[in-house]
């Protein structure tokens, strides 16, 4: 059996954790996707176990590891990654590997939303939601709960609406009270759901998309892209075809895996690493009145890294 050189990419978001293993030609050999459940360390362990099962019949050597997403630093230390990259660059590189002609990436995740503008295969501009999480996946999930439904059913139901209800879209708090009000007035459920999908789109375009020139091809990613109602609402609002890739959720992981290919690995990776016991501990530095919260990462009870200190007084390592 020939040994395949492979690269592992892990994208640890607030809601879900995604990972891929690719070969030298960027083909996805294994991939998986699970909920983070506010425990990134555990999520990554489970995920890597799943990946190991997928490749157990092949002779694969991991030559590079990349991490991205909001827990990229923590997991980067844990996996001894050679690349730790922000999610904007990672998503752009992942998407470009499959859609080299893409000009605009819409991304709506669990907690945040982004827009990435690409010209000639490089990122030229981007925006992220700043002070407000309105119109993200978390908002849709909580509204689904309020309506007593599964958020997964939102898309197909929204498509059946002929007359979407207008829902105030500027702010989640107002959108929510507006939604309750409309429900009590007797609007149909499908109309309200279609209205919600539209409000997500309006909010996105008025917030992160404000002042940005949206040029097709447009690719829509992140958990919310699985909602066909939101996709349709985007197409209506922008007046262009919006592409949702079935592997759209893996783009960040794919991007860092590709990035890790061009950087040599610091030390050998074996799947055994997952047997080690990792934990984190937050301590408050008493060095000055800043009271920095320092995060310590420990492997088998031994401190391997720490961060969060503003100055050297809080340096533990």
């Amino acid at each position: 059996m020939i040994t395949i050189n492979a690269y592992l990419g892990v994208d640890i978001g607030s809601i879900s954790t995604k990972a891929v293993i690719i070969d030298e030609e960027n083909n996805i050999i294994a991939s998986d996707y699970i909920w983070t459940k506010a425990n990134p360390i555990h999520a990554v362990k489970t995920l890597i176990e799943n990946l190991e099962k997928q490749i157990q019949n092949k002779d694969i050597k991991i030559k590079g590891i990349g991490t991205t997403g909001s827990a990229r630093k923590l997991i980067g230390v844990m996996l001894n990654a050679n690349v730790v990259k922000n999610e904007i660059t990672a998503h752009a590189i992942g998407t470009l590997s499959l859609h080299p002609d893409v000009r605009t990436i819409f991304e709506i995740g669990g907690q945040d939303s982004k827009i990435i503008l690409i010209e000639d295969g490089i990122v030229v501009d981007y925006a992220m939601n700043t002070l407000c999480a309105a119109g993200t996946g978390a908002f849709l999930s909580s509204q689904a709960q309020r309506l007593g439904m599964n958020v997964e059913d939102f898309g197909p139901i929204a498509l059946t609406s002929k007359n979407p209800t207008k829902i105030a879209a500027r702010c989640t708090v107002f959108a929510e009270s507006d939604l309750v009000h409309k429900a009590q007035m007797g609007y149909k459920k499908e109309d309200i759901i279609a209205g919600l999908c539209q409000s997500v789109v309006n909010n996105y375009l008025n917030n992160v998309g404000k002042g940005k020139k949206i040029i097709s091809p447009i690719i829509f990613q992140g958990g919310v892209s699985k909602n066909i109602g939101v996709k349709k609402a985007f197409e209506q609002e922008v007046g262009e075809n919006v592409i949702v890739d079935e592997n759209g959720h893996l783009m960040g992981a794919l991007g860092v895996a590709i990035l890790s290919k061009s950087t040599p690995l610091k030390s050998e990776f074996t799947f055994k690493i997952m047997e080690a016991d990792f934990d984190t501990k937050g301590i408050e530095c008493k060095g000055c009145s800043n009271h920095c919260e320092i995060i310590c990462v420990r492997k088998n009870q031994k401190l391997i890294d720490s961060w969060g200190n503003r100055c050297n007084k809080g340096a533990l390592k």
């Binding site: 990259k85 922000n86 999610e87 904007i88 660059t89 990122v123 981007y126 992220m128």
Partner: peptide, 11 residues
């Protein structure tokens, strides 16, 4: 903030 600045440098 870190994500924004890092991706800006990448650009």
């Amino acid at each position: 903030l870190i994500t924004r600045i890092e991706s800006f440098i990448d650009i």
